[in-house]
Design a binder for these strands. Sequence first.
DNA 1: CGAAAATAACTAGTATACAAGATATATTTG
DNA 2: CAAATATATCTTGTATACTAGTTATTTTCG
Lengths: 263, 263
Amino acid sequence: MKQAQPATQAPERSRKPRARNAPPKTNGHSPIAVTAKNSDVVYRDLRNAIISMQLVPGTPVLEREITERYGISRTPVREAVLRLAEERLIDVVPKSGTFIARIPLSVLGEAIVARRALEAVTVRAATEKASESQIMEMRAIIQRQRETAESGKEEAFHHADDDFHAAIATAGRLPGIWDMIQQIRIQVERYRRLTLPQPGRMLVVLGEHSDVLDAIARRDAERAVARMDLHLNRLKLDISVFRDMWPDYFVHDGMFDPDMFSD
Amino acid sequence: MKQAQPATQAPERSRKPRARNAPPKTNGHSPIAVTAKNSDVVYRDLRNAIISMQLVPGTPVLEREITERYGISRTPVREAVLRLAEERLIDVVPKSGTFIARIPLSVLGEAIVARRALEAVTVRAATEKASESQIMEMRAIIQRQRETAESGKEEAFHHADDDFHAAIATAGRLPGIWDMIQQIRIQVERYRRLTLPQPGRMLVVLGEHSDVLDAIARRDAERAVARMDLHLNRLKLDISVFRDMWPDYFVHDGMFDPDMFSD
DNA sequence: CGAAAATAACTAGTATACAAGATATATTTG
DNA sequence: CAAATATATCTTGTATACTAGTTATTTTCG
């Protein structure tokens, strides 16, 4: 590939080149997504299928099948696949094939550590800054979560779980950090799905959320952080069990550190 | 093991479709990058130009110019642009144009907070786990940084800065968290470039690094974390000054919280 | 019959062409 | 002459065709 050559533009045209130097007034990532591109739809669908383990690690991703299913061309499909490859949910092997990525054990461990650090920040901020109405809002979310737990609605339960953590970040005025936490969560989500069928799990989670909120309401930052830590630590208890149960879903990269799961 | 060929089954095709269900043996993101695609080269070049402020916020990104400069087609250029758009370094306005993104003040603030939280984790881990050789390695990095500071080599200085923080993460056995920190750094890097011409800055940074390393060597985790916090806090001192100096480079999204810069 | 070479079919990466919308310039109209 | 309209020419998003490399299968040969 050759390097940049000064582009000597011959000004022969009758029309002057357009100025076209007007930057957009609004920030690029405005809250309102104008219209979802085809590539966005494919991305979202694929991503959901992957993190819900409908597409298990190792499954080939067939571009052609997707183009036919959506009735679109390769370009937007490829765009979606590349985005997922950057998020480490898909492995693209150059002239060979594309596959649902295995879950790297090292990433698992570090993701949990990183999430604990970031959630500690949001919980502390929420304890300091949450308004009374925001605390009431969080109580409402927990109540909704209790209702979904009692009726055994897994999906709705997780949605409420999400909302609770998001509400903490919002109360702490740290929406950007919540975005980071969500991105980290993606890496752990598939592993978490494997651990789902543990009886009584939902009620345990509920109690932990309740403890965190109580500490926030009492403005006891240290306790709130400690309770959140406890809550997040529950995930990493039995990684080795699940690794042995579905060995094909995981990959041992060199950096896996068992100590990470024992502090 | 042979394949039964029932005569009733009409074997019209001479060849069967390929199985093609073999996932890759190696993990997708192996340490050795096989060959850089054209899109990777464009991505890296553009990214460097953006974070070094050679391309200032608001500058239009002309796909055509890039395709001509590299002698390639739109596809890989577009791929690179989309990756940068996801990293919030570029704003793509649907049927209008593409521009170097402005620096969002809210992201700035939260990025600094998040980085402090993550570097606290790596520093603490490094204090607990660093081998003597790793500590010596870090001393060597600081010495190299001293030499670059004395000869006023900005670029080499920053490189050594990078290496020092990376060495801490490596010593703490948390390479994935270092990746996260680097991604956060990108968001702040352009702002940092604006603040560069402060006399004596390099020597201050050097001293702070030295303090962090001393604490690590003494296995004093609390002190190491505190020193690192001090080091990272220096960045956020005077955001308002630079915002007023180059108003066009920043964007005020609603969530900017001045408190974030005064704790 | 088994191993090695040839081959066919698939893959990702790239190039190019077209479509639809947006914006600056040119033109018309009051 | 100013404002409104028209139009030319940008822009991104998408479709499609082509290239080069990989892998499963078939064929050849010992």
